[in-house]
Simulated scan of single mutants.
Amino acid sequence: MMTGTGARAWILRAVVALVVLVLGYLVAGAIGGAIPTNRGWHPADQGVRIFVESNGVHTGFVMPKVAAGVDWRRLAPAGDLADPRYGRLDHVAIGWGEKAFFLETKTWADVRPGTILGAAIGSSHTLMHVEHVPMPAVGPDVRAVVLSEAEYRRLAAFVAGSFRLGGARYPGYAGYDVFYDARGRYDAARTCNAWTGDALRQAGVRVGAWTPFPATVMQWFTP
């Protein structure tokens, strides 16, 4: 039987190991986010203006509903909204993430350690979050990026490919948003922010090699 001293030593070793693991993850993410890919990329002089946005935890894209032959109304029609009147707005905000985290955390007050831990360990249940919005204003949490039409179509193909066609639909937080079943597995390596970086990389945009945190995405674009 483990003595009190032995139990305390075991707990201490476990705590130290956890701290080292978390610090190692943070350092690895910072390094991965600083390694550039698509080094020769620069914003297009003319093309499609999109926005990369962050709420401090999640990153995603705001894109015109119709541009360069891409029409998001086909994947996310206004009729899917609790209030279809928002369908008249001209942009969509789209992000990818873990299902339980999305559906169970309508506000930051709803965030629970168990939900975060479950997502970090890994989940094959993922969702696309789509909001019908007006064109946003550029600011610290919203960066504008002009892509060539070819780059935009590659980005859109990646995003559209993340939807699970024929999957379920779930009510959003308000009248202007909705969730759809998504493809892909979420874990500590493939976070919502890593998904954003993957989409940008696929499009040919200069971004970090691995972008698990919001900062590792947003740092590549000037406010």
Rank of each mutant, 00 (worst) to 15 (best):
R112A: 10
G118R: 13
R13K: 15
A44D: 04
D80W: 09
H125G: 06
G33S: 12
Y86P: 04
G33E: 01
P43F: 06
F101Y: 15
V62F: 03
R13N: 06
V66K: 14
A109L: 10
P84K: 08
W72C: 01
W108R: 13
G29K: 07
G118I: 01
F101P: 05
D110T: 14
A30N: 05
D90Q: 08
L81C: 07
R13G: 03
I31H: 04
V22Q: 01
M63Y: 00
R74T: 13
V15N: 03
L75A: 15
I94M: 05
Y86S: 10
A82K: 14
I121M: 13
A30R: 07
R49D: 15
L103D: 07
A119I: 03
V16Q: 07
G97L: 07
F102G: 04
N55G: 11
A67S: 11
K106D: 11
S54V: 03
G60P: 01
T37E: 09
T37L: 09
P84R: 07
A67K: 00
M128W: 03
P43M: 08
A68M: 11
I94W: 00
G95D: 01
A30G: 09
G114S: 10
W41H: 13
T105D: 08
L18S: 04
F101V: 09
E53W: 11
G60D: 03
G69R: 08
T107I: 05
I94P: 02
A9S: 12
D80R: 09
G29Y: 00
H91F: 12
F51A: 10
D71I: 11
E53F: 11
T115V: 12
T59F: 10
G47M: 08
V92Q: 05
G24A: 08
D71A: 10
A78V: 09
E104R: 15
A78G: 11
